[in-house]
């Protein structure tokens, strides 16, 4: 399937079974892609080509019930801007590979992902933002919440090639672990072959703060609800990317129920 964004656009795209999707943004266009991997989707091969001076947000919502593999390739030209969100709270494994090519000066890519790893479900990600021109910007923020026996593996690679002056590569990963028996492996990589650059990475993996839990419980929330509320905070940056208020509220309620906010125990 091919979808082209021109002028001002807003495109909702549903993915079923195994599907290839080619998105393109034309010069000086600005808009939003909302891609939903429906219950029966098994794989998605997504290619996004951004022409110069185009701007878009792309939100990838996973609703798959079994298992899904997602490959994303992005080619970003001069002064193009993309903000991408990935929201995955499904009780199903997900393999996600992504390569972003910042081809020309001024290309700017930002990613925020929120993933929930329920018992025995494995979510793996292998992401790379490659800087192939100077004055390019890449930022990856990955958030994950792991419950009992949940598994999360994330390799995030910021790769700045030689000659890419003033390129910036930033990444942060925050993992909240709940319960027992979970496994989190996060590999932040910065491969830098140029001196005149800015780069950073931050990583935190840990249990909820006991004082925070006590504080929430002291206001009447059960332990499960408190953990749920703390977890929702990890998904809000992605949820807030949804422009449509009604849909934002629906997705938010879905996430809240998945993390146990409406549970009583």
């Amino acid at each position: 399937m091919e979808v082209t964004g021109m002028n001002t656009f807003q495109q909702a795209i549903d993915i079923s079974n195994a599907q290839e999707l080619h998105l393109c943004t034309k010069t000086f266009s600005k808009g939003e892609f909302f891609v939903t991997c429906k219950e029966d989707a098994t794989s998605l091969d997504l290619v996004l080509d951004m022409e110069e001076n185009s701007s878009c947000s792309i939100l990838l919502l996973n609703q798959v019930e079994k298992e899904v593999t997602i490959h994303v390739t992005m080619n970003m030209n001069r002064d193009s801007y993309c903000k991408m969100g990935v929201l995955d709270v499904q009780n199903a494994p997900m393999t996600w590979n992504q390569k972003v090519n910042l081809l020309e000066e001024g290309a700017n890519f930002e990613l925020i992902s929120g993933q929930l790893c329920l018992p025995n479900m494995e979510k793996t990600g292998n992401l790379e933002v490659e800087h192939l021109a100077g004055n390019t910007y890449g930022e990856m923020k990955n958030f994950a919440v792991l419950s009992d026996e949940g598994k999360y593996e994330m390799v995030a690679n910021g790769n700045i090639k030689n000659g890419c002056h003033e390129a910036q590569s930033h990444q942060a990963t925050r993992v909240l672990t709940l319960g027992k028996g979970h496994s989190a492996k996060v590999v932040p990589l910065l491969l830098i072959d140029e001196n005149q650059v800015k780069a950073s990475h931050a990583l935190s993996i840990g249990q909820p703060d006991e004082d925070q839990l006590y504080y929430l419980q002291s206001r009447g929330l059960t332990k499960r609800q408190s953990l749920g509320l703390l977890s929702v905070g990890y998904f809000m940056p992605v949820i807030e990317m949804i422009q449509d208020e009604k849909m934002q509220e629906e997705v938010r309620m879905l996430v809240e129920s998945k993390v146990g906010l409406y549970g009583n125990k």
Binding site: D209, D211, Y215, L229, L230, V232, G233, Y234
Partner: peptide
């Protein structure tokens, strides 16, 4: 000393 809870 009330707790600080970012994200909520």
């Amino acid at each position: 000393y009330p707790s600080v809870i970012s994200g909520v």
